[in-house]
Design a protein around this nucleic acid. Sequence first.
DNA 1: CTGCTTTGTATGCAGGGTCC
DNA 2: GGACCCTGCATACAAAGCAG
Length: 372
Amino acid sequence: MVFVRKTLALRSMPSLAKRWQDAKQTAFPCLFPLGYFYVLVKSKKGEEMNYIERAIETSMRHVCISAPSDPAARGLVRENAVIAITGAFSVSSKTVIQRHLDLNRESVNKLINRLKKKGVISVHPTFANTDRSFITLTSFGIREAELLLNRELNLRSDVSRVNERNLIHDLSVQLIVLKLAKAKKISGFATERDLAIQLEHRGNDPRLVDALVVDANTGSKIAIEMEASNSKNKNNGDIRRRILTKYLEELESNDGLYEFVHMYSHRQRFLTQIEKAHTRIFDSRSSPFSSSQQRLLLDSIKFKSSECSLIYELMFNSKRQLSDENGAATNKMNYIEQLAELEKLAKNTQDRVIEIRLNGFRDAGKALGILE
DNA sequence: CTGCTTTGTATGCAGGGTCC
DNA sequence: GGACCCTGCATACAAAGCAG
């Protein structure tokens, strides 16, 4: 705790922080790590705790914030949220931060610039997302994140490790996880990175999913899967069968990594394609799954189509306006939220009248250029 | 190509809060 | 009261988009 306070003070004085950073790199390379070394990965009871559990336990602390009324304190809390998010996911973007902290574009720019000035994060231009840039932590920022999250992060500050081809996918996962966190639907989460760090085969471990969240009410673990392309649905469904087998292994196991799988995408079409592929596999005479296994898979895999438009709008729509003029952009968000509600209602009630209303609402969206 | 508009970001300022 | 930094607003500016 003492250390956290100290670094916060340091961070609010850029020149001092800079000097501290320089000193760290030259004169005392071994001094600073002592700060977080004493909080070694152990639980309160003292027994060894695995990395994923540790991540789940600590993940929400700085990510889920209630903004204090004191502007200065609020600024620091927000800065910490940015550091915690970027630390946990290894990259982030202005759009994700903006959405999570409920800020306007101007305020995010100021927040990010402030952190940049303090030497905590760096912003890299790219063509791979709608922001045209992504955020990573500097080596100084990584230390800050490790202090905040109270665990080792195994992060590197060099940008060449960021795979720009996965950027939108990764940011979409963040969007969903953070939305769940903010809505208090989950009590903790572990990112794909966290899983990879603990699992033996690292990068290509078959048990890897895009994120792991813990349901706030039931405490059950849920795997989050994000389908950003439909490449896996082409061919003969062999890939889907392998993926199902992978899920089944965890679902059937008593100490599996997760009990449910939630599928997300920016396109409703991709989700229905996956659902269809599943039924095809189950229906085929040579189906590798017993009927009880099929039931388990059907019950455990849920398709979250209500988030499609949100993900599309924030991550994929290159025509989206970044500056919010309190007009088009917010109207659009309102429309999309209303649409999602209506879709949910139509699905739950199966009411013909609501379905007609939904179709009308969709048509209106198309006429206004919000939907395609 | 030019000149105009739009878009995204940066900066300075006023007015406002909390905490020591 | 001063340190600190929030917010919104006005303004400036560069880059991109676009019609002619």
